[in-house]
Structure formats: structure tokens, C-alpha cells
């Protein structure tokens, strides 16, 4: 049997630093999609809390605890990253999503401004606080965007979109940097 070489979604593309911003790849493992069955949200949440200390997130929210993160990912669905899911048999549909997404972190002063060029949602800190997440568009792609710090965002798209994601973000970072250099900021 041939040993295939594992490559991350953004291998060879990242990291990139432009001006004050850096773009790096995240490779949490494993990643599991958790979709509670009808009427089982509470039970799923309790089971998750007892196993990992993380509740099933409310819409537009995420949570993290000792390396494990859970991010709301659309109606009735969340992604658990960096920890194996507890036994949820009969309570939720679990799907292994490890390596299925391209996940990147955009970090640095001006990250909001770079994303504002691509995302039709207000991501400024007054509205969009640490731990808040949004399912929205980045350019023409569906994306999950989560604020992970004062000036850092985690962005998740389908793995096949990795090249486009990096291209779009790089262009936004370059444009922002060029504008700021021009204005002497």
C-alpha cells in the first residue's frame, strides 16, 4: 500500500505577512460536525458539557476550553475542533470533517479593515466580540468567520476553496497595506 502524503489545505500557500497582518493556517484535528436530532439539543449540550466542558453553542456563538473549540456552523449544526466528540449515539448526527475545510487565522492591527473589503457583515469589535461567529460570505464564498481575539479572526471555508480564500485575503491585505503606506499610516 502506498503511503499518501498528507497535505494541509493551504500547504505551500501560507503563512503570509503583509504590513501589519499575518495570515496563517490552522489545522485542528479532529474536526467533527455535530447536528442534534430534533428535540435533542439540550441532551447533546449536556453530554458535551460533561465530556469537554463546552455547551452546544447558540447561533452566532463559539466557545473554547483547553484546546477544544466548538463553533456554531449554521442552523442546528456546530463544528467541534481539536477534540474527539463524546458518544452522542441517538442524540445527534456526527460527521468527520477533519481536513474537509480550509481554516486560516488573520491576525494583526487592521484585520477588521481587511475583512471589511470582503465580508458583508459588520465585524467591528463593538458588534462582533470575541467568541462571536458569523456564517456569511467572503467574496463569493460561503464562510464561517469567528473573532478569536482583539485583532484576530478565524475563517473557515470548504477545502476546495483554499486557493481562492488565500487569493482574496491576500489581495485585501495588499490593498489595505498599499492604502495605509500611501497615507503614511
Amino acid at each position: 500500500m502506498v503511503d499518501l502524503i498528507a497535505k494541509s489545505a493551504c500547504a505551500g500557500l501560507l503563512p503570509i505577512t503583509i504590513g501589519s497582518l499575518t495570515l496563517t493556517e490552522e489545522t485542528p484535528d479532529p474536526v467533527t460536525s455535530i447536528a442534534p436530532f430534533k428535540g435533542q439539543s439540550e441532551a447533546v449540550s449536556e453530554r458535551l458539557e460533561s465530556a469537554l466542558g463546552l455547551k452546544f453553542p447558540a447561533p452566532n456563538r463559539s466557545a473554547s476550553k483547553s484546546g477544544a473549540r466548538i463553533v456554531w456552523a449554521g442552523q442546528g449544526r456546530a463544528l467541534l475542533m481539536g477534540a474527539a466528540a463524546p458518544d452522542l449515539a441517538g442524540l445527534a448526527a456526527l460527521t468527520d470533517q477533519s481536513d474537509a475545510n480550509a481554516i486560516v487565522t488573520l491576525k494583526g492591527e487592521g484585520a477588521e479593515d481587511a475583512l471589511a473589503r470582503l465580508v458583508p457583515v459588520d465585524l467591528r469589535a463593538a458588534h462582533f466580540k470575541r467568541g462571536h461567529t458569523a456564517r456569511t460570505f467572503l467574496g463569493h464564498m460561503s464562510a464561517s468567520i469567528t473573532r478569536t481575539g482583539v485583532d484576530s479572526f478565524e475563517i473557515t471555508v470548504f477545502r476546495a476553496m483554499a486557493g481562492t480564500l488565500v487569493h482574496e485575503l491576500t489581495e485585501a491585505m495588499e490593498s489595505l497595506h498599499a492604502r495605509r503606506s500611501h497615507l503614511g499610516q
Binding site: P59, N60, Q75, P120, V121, A134, R135, T136, F137
Partner: peptide
Amino acid sequence: PVCGDRDHRE
């Protein structure tokens, strides 16, 4: 109703 006020493109 889930995500809030959004652009019509979405």
C-alpha cells in the same frame, strides 16, 4: 431570524 440583518446577496 437566526443570523440577523444580512446582505441580500446571502
